[in-house]
Amino acid sequence: MKILKLVIIAIAAIVVFGVLAVAGLVAFMGYVGTDTLSSRATDSQMLAPDGTVAGKALVVYNPGLSGNPETAAKLIAGDLRDKGYEVCLAGINSTAAADVSSYNVIVVGGPIYGGVVSSSVQSYLTTMVPPEGAVIGAFAIGNNYSEQPFPTEAGLKTSAVISQNRDMDSQCAGFTAKLLD
């Protein structure tokens, strides 16, 4: 009887350990995979202002899993266009996002994962070589974040964490106003 109880306890422990190991692996892969899968944005589009061109702006985004960062990027791009900028709205892995050399204003944004902006946005911000005098801003969408979710070496003029639970239009307009101030 004692041996049977010990065997049952051992089997139960192995099953519990196996379930925990699989759950941990799934959670880890979900965390890593969300940024890898969501950063496959390869589209780009140009937005022309109605009047005189004030400059050229590049708005680069990682859409995240929810698509909210892409929505914010479109709002920011629209605000820049309304202020006279010729805007290139580009997914973070698009050909258009790779060349920042001709822009006066560069905005980069994406989701927050694990308290910081996604690794694809961090990498983009820290490896791009903007033209001298370019104004750089970054935004992130999320609710759980550290005090500074962006890499400090990115040389940002302004940054914002935009809540998906509040009026995104006004938050993006406020970000654009600060960026161009």
Score class of each variant (00 low, 15 high):
residue 112 I to Y: 00
residue 84 G to V: 02
residue 102 S to I: 02
residue 95 T to W: 01
residue 115 G to Y: 02
residue 128 M to L: 05
residue 140 A to L: 05
residue 35 D to Y: 05
residue 6 L to D: 09
residue 161 V to I: 06
residue 76 I to K: 00
residue 26 V to E: 01
residue 89 L to V: 08
residue 36 T to I: 10
residue 154 A to G: 11
residue 139 F to V: 04
residue 121 V to L: 03
residue 166 R to G: 06
residue 58 L to F: 04
residue 168 M to D: 04
residue 124 Y to F: 13
residue 170 S to T: 09
residue 71 T to L: 14
residue 178 K to F: 15
residue 62 N to T: 08
residue 1 M to V: 14
residue 164 Q to N: 13
residue 143 N to Y: 11
residue 166 R to P: 05
residue 65 L to H: 13
residue 47 L to K: 00
residue 158 T to L: 05
residue 41 A to E: 03
residue 69 P to T: 04
residue 93 N to W: 08
residue 30 G to D: 15
residue 141 I to C: 11
residue 56 K to M: 01
residue 70 E to H: 13
residue 129 V to K: 15
residue 20 L to Y: 10
residue 92 I to V: 10
residue 88 C to G: 02
residue 139 F to T: 09
residue 169 D to V: 09
residue 98 A to S: 13
residue 123 S to E: 07
residue 97 A to R: 00
residue 21 A to R: 07
residue 49 P to M: 08
residue 88 C to W: 05
residue 169 D to F: 15
residue 107 V to F: 07
residue 139 F to L: 03
residue 110 G to C: 13
residue 172 C to I: 06
residue 22 V to L: 12
residue 172 C to H: 00
residue 10 A to Q: 15
residue 58 L to Q: 02
residue 85 Y to S: 05
residue 14 I to W: 08
residue 30 G to F: 13
residue 178 K to P: 14
residue 19 V to D: 04
